[in-house]
């Protein structure tokens, strides 16, 4: 991060200073403009959480006519179980999923990207196939399966598949990145007598921080945002996740607390945003910044 701007000065040595300044102003201008477009809906959501209930659907302005924290208090205890419980459940499931996905998917990806074995292409194709079938039709057979093992009503159907690399997206992602790591490194390590495990652990993983961080971020956010899995497998309100809690706020046929819904929606964004901020600095480490020479 620190040396990148320095390099730019070297690269741009022949361009005059004023032109660089102007370019910088233009790109910041563009980015700020785009950010506002991106952000407006979120600001509206934030405003809605502070608004009086009967103003929510009639006003498009960002500034509420009156400010109130009521919705937050109402929402937090609005369902039979406090949102604190839902947050805890979401944390447990999301963190466990991150650990499982990063471990299991990187193992499988290493095999597909770097090791030679018979049947590799067939297994890879089968793995990709699992991505292509809409989940709606495997839902019931899978439910029956988990029920036979006795896992319905627990977090296990939501977590265990992650430790078994069931999400082919991440395997494929890591394969693409692992293949970009120069082969000479493996070969040199092999000369020194390193086996596949050592190469995986000492070379591939350390050089793959960006993609592992990407996988961690996506897993956390997508698990957090998922509501269909929890909807189907969790029956007791004390096991509900935040997303399921939010869905329960709105019943299309009856009375719904929209203020509470928006307040809790805002709160539900906080952990995933913080997680993103924490891990995003890892996104920029890697070959480019660790100064790898080819």
């Amino acid at each position: 991060m620190t040396d990148a701007p320095m390099k730019l000065t070297v690269v741009g040595a022949e361009t005059p200073l004023w032109r660089k300044r102007m370019m910088s102003v233009i790109s910041h201008g563009l980015l700020i403009g785009a950010s506002i477009l991106m952000l407006y809906p979120l600001l509206w959501l934030l405003a809605a959480s502070f608004r009086p209930e009967n103003e929510i659907f009639t006003s498009a302005s960002i500034i509420p006519s009156a400010w109130s924290l009521d919705a937050y208090f109402r929402g937090w205890n609005g369902l039979r179980t406090s949102f604190g419980v839902f947050f805890t459940n979401s944390f447990i499931i999301s963190i466990a999923s991150v650990i499982g996905n990063v471990m299991a998917c990187s193992l499988a990806a290493y095999a597909f990207a770097r090791l030679e074995f018979r049947g590799r292409k067939i297994w890879f194709a089968l793995m990709l196939m699992t991505l292509m079938l809409p989940y709606q039709v495997t839902l019931i057979p899978q439910y029956v399966l988990f029920r036979q093992i006795g896992w319905v009503d627990t977090f296990l159907p939501l977590i265990v598949p992650k430790f078994l690399a069931a999400d082919a997206f991440f395997i494929f992602l890591m394969v693409q990145f692992f293949r970009g790591i120069p082969r000479e490194l493996d070969e040199a390590a092999m000369m020194d007598g390193a086996g596949p495990w050592r190469i995986y652990w000492k070379i591939i993983l350390p050089l793959s921080t960006p993609v592992l961080a990407t996988a961690a971020i996506f897993t956390f956010i997508w698990t957090w945002d998922d509501f269909f899995g929890p909807l189907i497998y969790l029956n007791r309100m004390s096991d509900y996740t935040v997303m399921l809690g939010l869905r329960t706020f709105t019943d299309s046929t009856g009375l719904s607390d929209y203020g509470g819904l928006f307040a809790m929606s805002v709160l539900s964004l906080v952990p995933i945003f913080v997680f993103f901020l924490m891990f995003q600095r890892l996104l920029i480490e890697g070959i480019a910044t660790t100064g790898m020479k080819r």
Partner: peptide
């Protein structure tokens, strides 16, 4: 009695899955 409630849109797929899954 263990009670559970859901919004209308989520209710029916859940009841269908539970019924089909013998639960």
């Amino acid at each position: 009695i263990e009670g559970e409630f859901l919004g209308w849109a989520d209710y029916w797929p859940k009841v269908a899955t539970q019924t089909a899954g013998g639960n």
